[in-house]
Amino acid sequence: MALEQINNGDTGLDARNKINSALAFIGLIAPTQMIVEYYVNGNTGQTAVEIFNMLTAAYGYGYGYGTTGIIGTI
C-alpha cells in the first residue's frame, strides 16, 4: 500500500513522490506543492516519514506536529 512505500531515510525526489502518494492514500488533498518542496529540499535531515507526519498534522489529521507555510518573513 502507499503508506508502506515510505521508509525512513528516503530523501529527495523519491521521498517527495512517496509523500504525495501517501497523502493520496489517506484521502488527503496534498498541500501546495511548495510546502512539500520546502520540507523535502529545505530540510535534508528530515526523513520522508517525518515530513509526511508534519504535513498531515498541518492539515488537521493529527499524525504529528505542526508545519509552516510561509514564504518570506512576517
Partner: peptide, 26 residues
C-alpha cells in the same frame, strides 16, 4: 529557491490555513 529569494527581496506569502497560526506574530 523561493524561500531564500523571498527573504532577499522582501516578499511574503503565508500559504493556506497556516496563516491563522501566525496571527500573533502579524
Amino acid at each position: 529557491n523561493i524561500f531564500e529569494k523571498a527573504k532577499e527581496i522582501g516578499y511574503t506569502h503565508i500559504i493556506g490555513k497556516e496563516k491563522y497560526s501566525h496571527i500573533d506574530e502579524v
